[in-house]
Structures are given as structure tokens and as C-alpha cells.
């Protein structure tokens, strides 16, 4: 059953939206979603890496020997991650400081390697582009929504703008690590209920 390019793109936004559906890439999901801004920044950085690595892996899929394919994928992914890291340092330095170690850690994000291995190495460039872009934007949306929940409840702001009056007492628990687990669990439950047929 061959899917069209549009379907390859849209599946990443709902049917296979990481972290909620694929439940992949949880480490950055839990760590950086303290605010919407961080979530979007992390998501976009990952999208760039996904798009780049999917295109290159797909283009080189007949050249790369299967025995060293993982090593080749890692070289490609690491290159794109370093490019993102340098560009973020040059243009969005404060965001780079908050995301810190999680930017270089995109290298080991299993979404990126997973898409290279499971999709891009078996499909054409156009489809791989659509797949990378879809999954990347899905990841961004997921991080942003999780970040929104945590930021609104934990800090009473959204994108840094206060949404409640001054009488609102921030629910500090939500911006700390346990709050990440709880809100991710609730989001997963909601997604499963919504996706139930």
C-alpha cells in the first residue's frame, strides 16, 4: 500500500506523531518542555536535522554499504546537528544557552536515527523529505503543546506573557522534572482516548 507524498507528510502530524504515538525521543521531550519557547526551539532544531539527514540518507541509500550504514547515518546526523549547534550559537544565543546539552544530544535522538533507518533508507528523496518534515513538525507541535501546559500551570505565562491575574499562584511542580512525567502521561492518555476507534 503505497502512500502519497502528502500522506507521508500528514502522518507525522497525527497518526505517527512522536513522542505521543511513536513514544520516541522522550529525553528531550521531558527535559526541555519547561516553556513553549524552549519546546518550539528544540522542535525546529530537530526538524532541521531530520529533514537534512532524511534527504541525504535517502539520496545515498544505494551507495552506503549495509554493514556500515549505522556509522554512515551517525556521521550524517552528527554533521547536521553540529551545523544547527553553530547556527544557534551565532543567531539565537540565549535559546542555545537554555537548551544547552540537549542540542548536541539530538545526535542520539532515536527519532532521527529511527527515521533514517526505517524510512529514508527505503524510500525516495521526495517522500523522505515529506516524512522528515512531517515528523519534525509533529515533534515541534508535541513539544510546544506539552510546553504550553507546563508553562501555563507552572509559571502562569504563555511565551512569557502572563495569562492569569497577579493573584495566580504558579503550580511550581509542573515546571520541575516530576511535572514533566505527569503531564506527558496525561497527554498520552488523552491522545490514546482521542485516537480510539
Amino acid at each position: 500500500m503505497a502512500k502519497t507524498i502528502v500522506q507521508e507528510f500528514t502522518k507525522g502530524l497525527w497518526d505517527e506523531i512522536p513522542p505521543f504515538r511513536l513514544v520516541l525521543g522522550l529525553c528531550p521531550t521531558l527535559a526541555v518542555t519547561k516553556s513553549v519557547e524552549n519546546g518550539i526551539g528544540m522542535g525546529l532544531a530537530t526538524t532541521f536535522v531530520l529533514l537534512g539527514s532524511n534527504i541525504l540518507v535517502s539520496a545515498l541509500r544505494n551507495v552506503i554499504p549495509s554493514k556500515v550504514r549505522i556509522a554512515c547515518y551517525i556521521v550524517i546526523i552528527a554533521t547536521f546537528v553540529t551545523v544547527v549547534e553553530l547556527l544557534m550559537q551565532a543567531y539565537t544565543y540565549p535559546l542555545f544557552l537554555t537548551l544547552g546539552i540537549f542540542i548536541p544530544l539530538i545526535v542520539v535522538n532515536c527519532i532521527v536515527l529511527g527515521r533514517a533507518e526505517a524510512f529514508a533508507s527505503k524510500n525516495g528523496i521526495a517522500k523522505s523529505m515529506a516524512d522528515g518534515l512531517g515528523i519534525g513538525i509533529g515533534f515541534t507541535l508535541a513539544l510546544a503543546s506539552l510546553g504550553a501546559v507546563r508553562e501555563v500551570l507552572g509559571a502562569g505565562t504563555i511565551l512569557g506573557i502572563p495569562v492569569f491575574g497577579p493573584s495566580f499562584e504558579p503550580f511550581k511542580f509542573m515546571v520541575e522534572a516530576p511535572g514533566a512525567f505527569v503531564s506527558l502521561g496525561l497527554m498520552l492518555a488523552i491522545m490514546n482516548l482521542a485516537g480510539k476507534k
Binding site: I64, V68, C72, V75
Partner: peptide, 13 residues
């Protein structure tokens, strides 16, 4: 192939 790949990557970076 690995050598070519890493060379390109190094140059680009």
C-alpha cells in the same frame, strides 16, 4: 565510502 563521507562532513563543518 566512510572516508569520503567524513571528509565531506569535516569540510562542511
Amino acid at each position: 565510502i566512510l572516508a569520503i563521507l567524513t571528509t565531506f562532513s569535516g569540510g562542511l563543518l
